[in-house]
Design a protein around this nucleic acid. Structure first.
Length: 266
DNA sequence: CCTTAGTCCTGCATGC
DNA sequence: TGCATGCAGGACTAAG
């Protein structure tokens, strides 16, 4: 699943190749992959210059001289440059440019969404700050007084934008915090550890170009490398790399959650 | 305020 | 081998 590090990797690949180019069209091959009326979206983007590419949380964002285009890959989405006539399955949409090769949204599960935002409308409202900076994360966590499980809070995009299931579990393990700890009960030490862990894990995952478990690929179809660094995520039944205790799996907020019951005490 | 369940989807694992 | 079932999961919505 593309989370912040995977999306960051994608944006870094797209930026030098698309900045300054112009939009030609967006074709929706699956009607729900493109939000709104496709003809209206195409009127809104045709000929527009891509001023800037950036990431907000898990969103790929294109600044089109005012209006903005966002792409969210959700579960299984990939954004691939269309190079050879290589037949990719599950193409749900195509982005066409004046100069650059097109981009295919390949998305078996059809959850990915492309959306055009008009200049006047609030852009990605309700999205919390990005969690790459430990101090920001610490301040945000200090402001959470809720008794919700800390793992649920980490996954809440209104609180922090970009953390998904993989990096939530890995960060909690690194910080030695139990995923069910009520967020408001974290003491200062735990908060500082968790904030440091979140930013460190995300930065390290970016450095490794993301995690490829099954679906994720960068725009040139290359795998990430962080899957070799995972300590608890999908490691149920294997020994904890720190203490050797068997990694447990529980469900928290309808999400599979992996942790070491010895290192991460409540 | 909060949690839970349902929705969207398909590939894959499981079980008979 | 083949079929049915169920599960995963990010974001959103509705109900309690």
């Amino acid at each position: 699943m593309p989370e912040l590090p995977e999306v960051e990797t994608i944006v870094r690949e797209l930026r030098p190749r698309l900045t300054g180019d112009r939009m030609r069209s967006i074709e929706a091959l699956w009607h729900r992959s493109l939000c709104g009326d496709p003809r209206e979206v195409n009127r809104g983007i045709r000929g527009r210059r891509i001023m800037e590419l950036f990431r907000r949380g898990k969103y790929i964002c294109l600044d089109l001289e005012g209006p903005r285009l966002t792409i969210h890959l959700r579960m299984s989405g990939r954004l691939l440059f269309i190079t050879s006539p290589a037949e990719e399955c599950h193409i749900r949409a195509r982005l066409n440019f004046h100069e650059s090769p097109g981009l295919a949204l390949v998305d078996p599960r059809k959850f990915g969404r492309i959306r055009l935002w008009h200049e006047a409308e609030p852009f990605l409202p309700d999205l919390g700050p990005d969690p790459l900076d430990a101090e920001t994360v610490c301040n945000v966590l200090a402001g959470v007084i809720s008794r919700r499980a800390v793992k649920t809070v980490l996954l809440d995009q209104k609180v922090l934008a970009g953390i998904g299931n993989i990096y939530a579990d890995e960060s909690l393990f690194t910080a030695r915090v139990h995923p069910l700890t009520p967020a408001g009960d974290l003491d200062n030490n735990q908060r500082v550890r968790l904030a440091a862990a979140v930013s460190r894990v995300l930065r390290e995952a970016i450095r490794r170009r993301g995690t490829t478990l099954s679906d994720y690929r960068d725009p040139d179809s290359r795998n990430g490398g962080f899957q070799h660094q995972l300590k608890v995520y999908q490691c149920t039944g294997r020994p904890c790399p720190v203490c050797g205790t068997t990694i447990s799996r529980i469900v928290v907020g309808q999400r599979g959650t992996h942790f070491c019951p010895r290192c991460q005490k409540k």
